[in-house]
Design a protein around this nucleic acid. Sequence first.
DNA 1: TTTTATTTTTAGGCAAGACTAAATCTTTGT
DNA 2: ACAAAGATTTAGTCTTGCCTAAAAATAAAA
Lengths: 239, 239
Amino acid sequence: MHKLTNRTPLSEAQEDYLKQVLLLGSGGEGPGRLEDTHPVSTQSLADQMQVKPASVTGMLKKLAALGLVEYEAYRGVRLTEAGYRVALEVLRHHRLIEAYLHEALGYGWEEVHAEAEKLEHHISEAFEERIAEWLGHPSHDPHGDAIPSATLELPPTTPNRRLSALEHGVRGLVARVATQDQDSLNLLAHLGLKPGAALQLLEQVAEGSRIQVGKERYLLPMSLAQVLWVHLEGGPHDG
Amino acid sequence: MHKLTNRTPLSEAQEDYLKQVLLLGSGGEGPGRLEDTHPVSTQSLADQMQVKPASVTGMLKKLAALGLVEYEAYRGVRLTEAGYRVALEVLRHHRLIEAYLHEALGYGWEEVHAEAEKLEHHISEAFEERIAEWLGHPSHDPHGDAIPSATLELPPTTPNRRLSALEHGVRGLVARVATQDQDSLNLLAHLGLKPGAALQLLEQVAEGSRIQVGKERYLLPMSLAQVLWVHLEGGPHDG
DNA sequence: TTTTATTTTTAGGCAAGACTAAATCTTTGT
DNA sequence: ACAAAGATTTAGTCTTGCCTAAAAATAAAA
Ligand SMILES: [Mn+2]
Ligand SMILES: [Mn+2]
Ligand SMILES: [Mn+2]
Ligand SMILES: [Mn+2]
């Protein structure tokens, strides 16, 4: 038997931990169903949250006591149903805010993340509702990340692949840019490599991926090629 | 010798205390120059912040140590120049956010305050800048309160008077609605009594002010008449 | 001018969330 | 199988911002 309503509001820190447990526990394709999630280590959480491992342990115990995570000492954490819902809610806030800052206030694609990171914890449900409405209930944010719906459903996932894993000759559209590094985002923005952009993979070499974007050709270093997710032209036929 | 830059960012609580010291230390006409301000008691701050007096004392000591207030035990506080600037900055955030929520996101006039109260501490200067731009750098928020400029100048004050203090027969425009009580705001909104609305004072009676608004006549109870600030028709001629 | 009431401050605590240093698991390499 | 290395947890502190109860100062009344 679960408690279906969350009595006390969670702190900013608690919300951020839950969000990171979801993100780190999901594959690189971004969050999916709770079942497809794997346990997350104390260390990875510590790195992500910019905090020492001992602090993580402390917080995990509290979240476990609240029934938001399943935590087994030395064995990592995973979200409970309740924790999963909180994480998705925070993710929805984050991504809606990013989309809104970009579309309504002209924020650069690469500068939305930091602002969203703070605001996600401080907006009301009314605010969430109104910006979602203004945006027309988008399914993806400016980086191509999926936005959970108001009822916390995830949009259907398209079968994308990392640029670094494509075979030569393949064409497709940038679907997602999976980094939060300001300068990487800025670099990619300057090359026109944002969600929706068309590209072709010319060849894979040791240093990275040689690609064609419009009339330009670039050798995109491995570290960047790995964060670019591509939606293949035509896409795979199922059946 | 002052420190001109604030090294560490202030906490939400600290910012709110400074804002309230400014508000409580200014007359009912709203904040003006620092010199026109009077010292604020521990008790009034405690009431306003919904906190016990002992907590106020503790915070005031910290703010004094930071050079943001002048605090003399048993004698009340006032802002220093530095504290005054912080307070105005927070006020600017608050009022710009209220205006933006109202104009851009269709928030009701009476529901903007609560959201602004939280967000004021969590937006970046970039955000402030962009919503100010979007709004066209307004000088007043939806309640008629003055918005400090980006350089923290206050707009020129118009000589308004409380409805409860007018002589009968006088006509004017609602300039400011100086309450944060949700239900009072809601009531006034339903009567069309928001900034810009024209009204005439018919007579003052013990229970309050009898007024005419368009074709309607109301007997506005004292408590409400006191929060309605009116800009007199024609206004006073100086000279 | 005393006494009484009100306001304010001090003293001592508590919960969050972080840290360091020291213990304790787990995993790895031989 | 076993020791060394690496990861994680425990123990003990710190800061922030709040609280209660008791002491002290100020203001009001007699
Ligand atoms: Mn982001
Ligand atoms: Mn965050
Ligand atoms: Mn307000
Ligand atoms: Mn506030």
